[in-house]
Design a protein around this nucleic acid. Structure first.
Lengths: 185, 185
DNA sequence: ACAAAATGTCTCACATTTGAGAAATACTTC
DNA sequence: GAAGTATTTCTCAAATGTGAGACATTTTGT
């Protein structure tokens, strides 16, 4: 059940909590252009709002990454589209990437989200290994490092978007170009 | 005047505030293995603690970056050492990089810190331009992009450090190698 | 061993944040 | 226009965070 106001509050929360995890809810409400009273009508408490933000981030990033993987059978194209998908997730990607890696996370294959997360990143590494075996990627870089670099490029690009006036498609191509060159043999 | 306890509190605060800007001071104290009462003995209030953390971050990162610049006359070597310096700053680098760029920052050349910051990043871009003119760096990438990528690689590398068991010098070389290839012609 | 310094424990008053009831107002739908 | 719904305004009690006094305990330095 998703009203426009509820959606607006969630997006505001994602933005505000991205900069300050413990920001007062008043700030989230202000940023969503609603009162805090209204915010409380939609969300039982802070914990619920944070949890729902997590779910929204997880659902959208997961969906985008899986779609990128399944958009092609060509490993290099998959890799490229995964980079673009990450960039399109914007600031949410950093949260998503860290989500299942944090110290207080209980990772469990029985959990659908954990399983999907593992699918994404295991597939990522499988793609990398495959491209290394066919000589398309630098065999000296570990798949782990290539993945770390992937998230670094995404984050840089997301940050650059906020600053530069350049066309978004240009930025994405630049990001891919930089990444591709970095990981090539 | 820097006692071991004071230093420990500051380092704890840098760490805790890095993850959660508005974390309760109790958390900082816990992480520093002191009581909150003691924390208050050393720091008048939260604002003072935050300000001193900023100063510590600024001083150490600035010093490291300027040292890297002045360690050589060779632009490429300067660039490489700046990457290493950033990585050595650890989580502090991200805060330092954003420090003078945030919306609520009053940037003023009369201010020594602002001037030094400008020196660092103007020099960075001068180095990039110089390397582009001599054909050592890709002329199609804007110096802004090359700088954004620099900070993105640093940040990823710092994050990867917490996760990987690899030797730190290896990671730094890998980061440089990736960055260098990304920005090469 | 002793004195001084540092820290912990306990407590308190105050400030801020939180969550929600009640009534008023604004908006939407038919 | 009327009824229903959504939101705002106002208020309050409770919870949490903050900063600091007083005293006790521990640590440090000579």
């Amino acid at each position: 059940m998703m009203t426009a106001t509820r959606k607006r509050i969630i997006e505001s929360a994602i933005q505000v909590f991205n900069e300050d995890l413990s920001a007062p809810l008043q700030k989230v409400a202000d940023n969503a252009a609603v009162t805090r009273r209204t915010l409380h009508r939609y969300f039982k408490d802070r914990n619920e709002l944070v949890e729902i933000c997590r779910q929204v981030i997880e659902t959208s990033c997961k969906k985008a990454m899986i779609a990128a993987i399944q958009s092609s059978d060509e490993p290099m194209l998959q890799l490229e589209r995964m980079l673009y998908a990450g960039i399109d997730c914007g600031a949410k990607y950093a949260t998503f990437y860290k989500m299942h890696r944090s110290a207080d996370h209980t990772h469990n294959q029985q959990n659908k989200n954990c399983a999907d997360y593992d699918y994404i990143y295991a597939t990522f590494q499988k793609i990398v290994v495959e491209l290394q075996e066919t000589g398309q990627l630098n065999p000296k870089m570990s798949p782990e490092w290539i993945q770390v670099l992937h998230s670094g490029i995404i984050e840089s690009t997301v940050n650059a978007r906020a600053i530069t006036q350049q066309n978004i498609e240009n930025i994405k191509e630049l990001a891919w170009s930089s990444y591709f060159k970095a990981i090539s043999p």
